[in-house]
Nucleic acid binder design. Structure first.
Length: 405
DNA sequence: GGGTTTAATCTTCACAGGCA
DNA sequence: TGCCTGTGAAGATTAAACCC
C-alpha cells in the first residue's frame, strides 16, 4: 500500500477488475456463474471502475498504442520510453533497450519472458497477470520462451500514471464481453457470429473442443510477441518520420541485436501458430474418430414409448441405456468419444482437478462434461446436461414424423 | 408511470439410486 | 466401491399482474 502507484489504485481493485482471477484461482476470461449473474448496472460500474484501475503488465509494457483510452499518451509509461520529437535517440535506447546497450550501471535481469516479474511485483504487488503468466510458463519449455520483451519492463519512471487496464488475454471466445477490447485493439481478427456460435456450443459456458490452457497460452504468446514487434516497429517508425524524409541517423536505427531479437519474436510467433495449428488438427482428427466410432453400431430405431423418457432423454430407453455410442444419446456424436473414454477410465480414480468451465476446484459433485468424465463441477455439469437435453428435444421436435403417424 | 406483490423460472447444492 | 445421473429443496432472479 505504500508503493508509489498504490495511491492510484482504487480500493476495490481486485474485485472490480472484470478479468481478475478470484481467490478460487479462476483463470482470466472465464467468468464464473456468479459473475454472469451480475446485474448490468453492476457490471457497468465494474467496468467503469476498472478503467481507472492499475494497468495490466501487458498494457504497461507492451501496449503503448492505448491512447484511445482515457489516459493521455504522454502519461503512458512505455510511451515515455519512445523517442520524442527533437529528443536524441541516445536517451531512447537507455530506457527502451537497457539490455541491448552498453551499460555502466548494474544491468537489470535479462528481459526474457517472465524474468521481469519480480522487479514488476516489487512495486505493483502481486499482479493479476502473475497467475496466468506462471501457468503459461509452466506449459512452455524454456526453449520456447519469447526472446525478449519490447520495450523491457520495469522501466516506469516515477510520477507517471498508468493507463487503465486491458484484458490481459484475448477475450474468451466463449464469453462475449462488451467490455472486451475490439479486434483492432487486440489485434485479434473478429470472430464471425457463425464461428462464434459454433464455438459456443453450450451457450458460451461449456463445450471446449480441446484443452483450453495450451491453446490460450499459445494465443497469449502470439499476442505478446506481436506486440513486441509492433512496438519495435512503431518506435523506429516514429524516429524515422522525425527525419522528415531525410536519411535516418545511424543512431536512430535499430542495431543488429535488436533486429535479431525481433526475428526471434517472429520465430516464436511462428512456433506458437504451428502449435495452434497442431492443436486444431489434433482436435479435428479427434472428432472425426469419434464420429467414426459412432457410425459403427447397428442402429435400431427406438420405439416411441421408449424414445420419450425422462426429459425426452433417449439414453434412458432400455436398449440404449448407458450406450454412449448410440446416436440418440443426449451427447450426440460429438461427445461419444469422450464417453468412450469415460468407460475406459472407469475404475480409475480420476483426481479431482478444476472445472473445465468455471475452473473451480471444489464442488459437491464432479460431473461429466464435453471434455469427459469428472471435468465439470456440479453446477456446470447440471447446466451442461440440461442444455444437452434441451438440444436433444429441439432436434427431436424438428425431426419429421414417421410415415405411420 | 411507478411501486409492490405474486408467480414462474433459474441456479445451485446435496442426496439417493443405479450401474459397472 | 466409485462414478454418474436425476431429483427435490432452497435461494435468487425475472416477469407479470395489480394497485395507487
Amino acid at each position: 500500500p505504500n508503493g508509489p502507484y498504490q495511491s492510484q489504485q482504487p480500493a476495490s481493485f481486485s474485485s472490480s477488475y472484470p478479468h481478475s482471477a478470484p481467490a478460487t484461482g479462476m483463470p482470466i476470461g472465464m467468468p464464473s456463474p456468479i459473475e454472469a449473474r451480475r446485474t448490468s448496472d453492476e457490471s457497468e460500474s465494474t467496468h467503469r471502475r476498472s478503467q481507472h484501475s492499475l494497468p495490466s503488465l501487458q498494457e504497461v509494457f507492451l501496449n503503448p498504442s492505448s491512447e484511445t483510452r482515457d489516459s493521455p499518451r504522454s502519461l503512458h509509461p512505455s510511451h515515455s520510453s519512445y523517442p520524442r520529437p527533437g529528443e536524441p535517440l541516445s536517451s531512447f535506447p537507455t530506457s527502451i533497450r537497457p539490455t541491448l546497450s552498453a551499460r555502466t550501471t548494474a544491468p537489470p535481469p535479462l528481459p526474457i519472458y517472465g524474468a521481469h516479474q519480480p522487479a514488476t511485483q516489487a512495486y505493483m504487488g502481486r499482479d493479476r497477470d502473475t497467475d496466468f503468466r506462471q501457468a503459461a510458463e509452466q506449459h512452455m519449455p524454456s526453449s520456447q520462451h519469447p526472446p525478449a520483451l519490447w520495450p523491457p519492463s520495469g522501466q516506469r519512471p516515477a510520477g507517471q500514471l498508468p493507463l487503465p487496464s486491458l484484458p490481459r488475454q484475448p477475450a474468451s471466445p466463449r464469453q462475449p464481453n462488451s467490455a472486451a477490447p475490439s479486434p483492432l485493439e487486440t489485434g485479434r481478427p473478429p470472430i464471425h457470429p457463425d464461428e462464434d456460435s459454433a464455438r459456443n456450443k453450450y451457450e458460451g459456458t461449456l463445450g471446449r473442443p480441446f484443452d483450453a490452457y495450451p491453446y490460450l497460452d499459445a494465443l497469449n504468446k502470439i499476442a505478446l510477441s506481436s506486440r513486441i514487434i509492433f512496438n519495435f516497429a512503431e518506435a523506429f517508425d516514429v524516429a524515422a518520420r522525425e527525419q522528415n524524409g531525410g536519411a535516418p541517423l545511424p543512431s536512430r536505427l535499430p542495431n543488429e541485436t535488436e533486429i535479431t531479437v525481433m526475428m526471434d519474436n517472429a520465430s516464436n510467433i511462428r512456433q506458437c501458430l504451428n502449435d495452434v495449428k497442431s492443436m486444431i488438427q489434433h482436435n479435428r482428427m479427434h472428432n472425426e474418430r469419434a464420429r467414426d466410432m459412432v457410425r459403427e453400431p447397428v442402429v435400431r430405431k427406438p420405439l416411441e414409448d421408449e424414445d420419450v423418457h425422462m426429459y425426452n432423454d433417449p439414453s434412458k430407453a432400455p436398449q440404449q441405456q448407458h450406450h454412449p455410442h448410440h446416436p440418440h444419446h443426449p451427447l450426440g456424436h460429438q461427445s461419444a468419444y469422450t464417453l468412450a473414454e469415460v468407460k475406459k477410465r472407469r475404475g480409475r480414480a480420476a483426481p479431482p482437478g478444476r472445472c473445465h468451465s468455471c475452473n473451480r476446484v471444489d464442488t459437491p459433485e464432479w460431473r461429466r462434461g464435453p471434455d469427459g468424465a469428472r471435468t465439470l463441477c456440479n453446477a456446470c455439469g447440471l447446466h451442461y446436461a440440461k442444455l444437452e437435453r434441451k438440444r436433444q428435444s429441439e432436434q427431436r421436435s424438428i425431426r419429421p414424423k414417421p410415415v405411420h403417424e
